[in-house]
Simulated scan of single mutants.
Amino acid sequence: MSIIEKAADKLEKEVKPHVQQAPAAPVDPAPAHGENGVPRDEPGPDFQSSPALTSKRITLDQAKMRQYGIVTPAQGRTQIAEQFRVIKRPLLTNAFNKGPGMIKNGNLIMVTSALAGEGKSFCTVNLAMSIAMEMDRTVLLVDADVARPSVPKILGLGTERGLLDILLDDKLELADVLIKTDVEKLTLLTAGRRHTHSTELLASQSMGELLKELAERYADRVVIFDSPPLLLTSEARVLASQMGQIVLVVEAERTSQQAVKETLRQIESCDVVNLIYNKAGSFSGGEYYGYYYHESA
């Protein structure tokens, strides 16, 4: 039985409870512009540099985050917090395993979905916040949904220079676009200005070098990417080929088995795939709303 058939079989048999979330509204993409024949976009009229771009530090609105169902450090032991503690543990084990089963770039984790609206950004931010509460780990949250970023809305960010900007500008350093937060171990990298050739940028040598730096520069760092939906964009497939681990969010009673099979087929080159069965109705005795499996492709 193939990895796709196994995953689909598990998805049919396992129905786990999940805490409901408040969906984040997508941001409409800005128009693209060319300059002197070079496919390089300029920021739209609403592009503004917030104080975070200068100070490199922001204070998150944790009260607003809790309204979205996001785990926060001061929240204590909640059902969502406990569920993401379970979710993150195998991811962290894989990320920092130095033994025979060591996974290349295991600390690079992409969260994606087959379709839009399945809750991937909700899961991405919660996973990042949960890992940021670890005693000996730091986390970098990268908004790689370059066409329709949702992380800024959830965290209350403005439009910042970010991932695509550093890929476009050789003079821009990673440190110039990283945003520190008042959550001590959480740092952010936004998507940056939109670009018509974002797929090519994510597949470029510059992106490969950036991922290498992110994976190797800090031994305790987990890098979590909020990716576009796999079946709707080409950017997600490019990112998937460079990840050590992938988390696939599947919406209960909405995502078809065929969509799940096709999505898994597109990421089967990744040795570690994790599935979260999201938005499932709670029932007595349930402990966890997803399942995890690890199998070499």
Rank of each mutant, 00 (worst) to 15 (best):
A7S: 06
A7V: 09
A7F: 10
A7Y: 07
A7T: 07
A8T: 12
L11M: 08
E12V: 02
E12Q: 03
K13H: 11
E14W: 04
V15H: 06
K16M: 04
P17H: 03
P17F: 01
P17W: 02
P17L: 00
H18L: 09
H18S: 15
H18P: 10
H18D: 15
V19E: 13
V19R: 14
Q20N: 13
Q20P: 11
Q21D: 13
Q21S: 13
A22L: 14
A22P: 11
A24I: 07
A24N: 01
P26H: 09
D28R: 14
D28F: 06
D28C: 10
P29D: 01
P29A: 05
P29Y: 03
A30W: 04
P31M: 02
P31E: 05
A32I: 04
H33T: 14
H33R: 15
G34E: 15
E35N: 10
E35L: 15
N36R: 15
V38M: 07
V38C: 12
V38S: 13
P39D: 10
R40D: 07
D41M: 06
D41W: 07
D41H: 13
E42A: 10
E42N: 13
E42P: 06
G44R: 01
D46Q: 11
D46P: 12
D46M: 05
D46K: 11
Q48K: 10
S49I: 02
S49Y: 13
S50Q: 08
P51I: 03
P51L: 01
A52H: 01
L53Y: 15
L53M: 12
T54Y: 10
S55K: 15
R57Q: 10
I58G: 04
I58A: 06
T59R: 10
T59K: 13
L60P: 10
D61G: 08
D61V: 02
D61I: 00
Q62G: 05
Q62R: 11
Q62W: 00
A63M: 05
A63D: 09
K64D: 07
R66D: 08
Q67K: 11
Y68C: 09
Y68R: 06
G69L: 03
I70H: 04
V71D: 01
P73Y: 00
A74S: 12
A74V: 04
Q75I: 07
R77Q: 11
R77H: 09
R77N: 09
T78K: 03
T78W: 00
I80N: 06
A81W: 00
E82W: 00
E82I: 00
Q83S: 13
F84T: 03
F84I: 03
R85Q: 06
R85V: 03
R85C: 02
K88D: 01
K88T: 15
L91V: 08
L91F: 04
N94H: 11
A95R: 13
F96G: 08
N97E: 11
K98T: 14
K98F: 07
G99D: 14
P100C: 04
G101H: 14
M102V: 12
M102P: 10
I103A: 11
K104V: 10
K104S: 15
G106R: 11
N107F: 07
N107H: 11
V111C: 03
V111Q: 08
S113V: 03
S113E: 01
A114V: 02
A114R: 01
A114C: 08
L115S: 08
A116W: 03
G117N: 06
G117R: 00
E118K: 01
E118V: 00
K120W: 02
S121A: 06
S121I: 04
F122C: 13
F122D: 07
F122I: 09
C123K: 00
